[in-house]
Amino acid sequence: MNKIKMTALMISLLLVMSIFAGCADNGPQTGESGKTILKVGTDPTYPPFEYTNDANEIVGFDIDLAKALAEKMDMEVEFVPTSFDGIFNGMNAGSYDVIIAAISMTPSRMETMLFSKPYLSNGQVILTRKDAEKISTQEELKGMKVGVQLGTTADTAAEKYADEYGFEVTKFDEIIQTFSAMKAGHVDAIAVDYAVAIEYVQREPESYQISDVMLTNEPIAVAIKKENTELHEKIDAALLEIREDGTLKKISEEWLGGDYTSDIDEELDVVE
């Protein structure tokens, strides 16, 4: 009798599992507007690209970009907040369709995912306190503590050059923590995306300065799951539209105070 009950229970469980499996839909989903949803993975701790404002809204350069692309593709955008150190795994697992989160193009990343045409000039720059002596060469980093965000290309580049130029790398989960650490004197410099450095200097010119040291050249683009070639083509077409109609330039001027979307140097100079 117990065996019969156990068998019946197992059959019931299998039926329930099959029902849920049948309900799972890994294909395109439709939003309240009736349009197909574009799920965007982003890390809302990285101003001016994506961050949460005082009204608890995710805003920034990449957020406006994603909305503009979705509009051109006649899609409804949905943002999926994700920590940067797990953002690529999330896309591969199907949690979202694309990543729009200041993603630098690198050869190794291009082997595992698709990239749109780059939409923003970028490289890893060294930023220091305003009251510090401005540095102009990598050799001047000797003896310094350099803060980076964990898992970023700044992290990779700093690790690469640390032994060669004799500086120490200190890693943080969020980019804002690196700036807080430098203000508190825990780090002497920060390696960070050029656009982020610009934003912080514009916001607090009395606190920060951008050095002449550029560690890399790595333009920023939309990352797309490797096999999703159809979406890749649509995003490139939409990106071309917002470039030609001036929307992309306008977004750059609003968030970065200038146009960093034209004349992008697409020749990668990346540390991996």
Rank of each mutant, 00 (worst) to 15 (best):
L9Y: 14
I11N: 11
L13R: 12
G22A: 07
C23L: 15
Q29T: 10
T30P: 12
T30H: 11
G31D: 09
T36S: 07
I37P: 08
P48C: 02
T52N: 08
A55N: 15
A55C: 08
I58T: 12
V59T: 13
G60P: 12
F61N: 08
A66G: 09
A66R: 04
K67N: 15
A68R: 12
L69G: 06
K72V: 15
M73V: 06
E76F: 13
T82M: 12
S83P: 13
F88V: 14
F88D: 10
G90F: 03
N92K: 14
S108E: 15
R109V: 00
M113W: 01
F115A: 04
F115M: 13
L127W: 04
T128E: 07
T128G: 04
K130Y: 11
A132R: 14
E133D: 12
Q138I: 10
E139N: 14
E139P: 05
K142P: 06
G143R: 10
G147S: 00
G147P: 12
Q149V: 03
Q149I: 03
T152L: 05
T153V: 13
A154W: 01
D155E: 02
D155K: 00
A157L: 01
A158F: 04
Y161L: 15
A162Y: 00
A162I: 11
D163Q: 14
F167A: 04
E168Q: 15
E168I: 01
V169R: 06
K171V: 01
D173N: 14
I175R: 01
T178D: 01
A184E: 14
A184D: 09
G185E: 05
D193P: 12
Y194H: 09
A195M: 04
E199Y: 13
E204A: 11
Y208M: 02
T216G: 01
T216Q: 05
N217G: 02
N217S: 08
I220Q: 08
A221V: 01
V222K: 03
A223K: 03
K225G: 11
K226I: 01
E230Y: 05
K234H: 13
A238P: 11
L239N: 09
L240A: 15
D245P: 11
G246Q: 14
T247E: 10
K249C: 02
D259A: 03
D259V: 02
E266Y: 02
E267A: 14
V270L: 02
E272H: 02
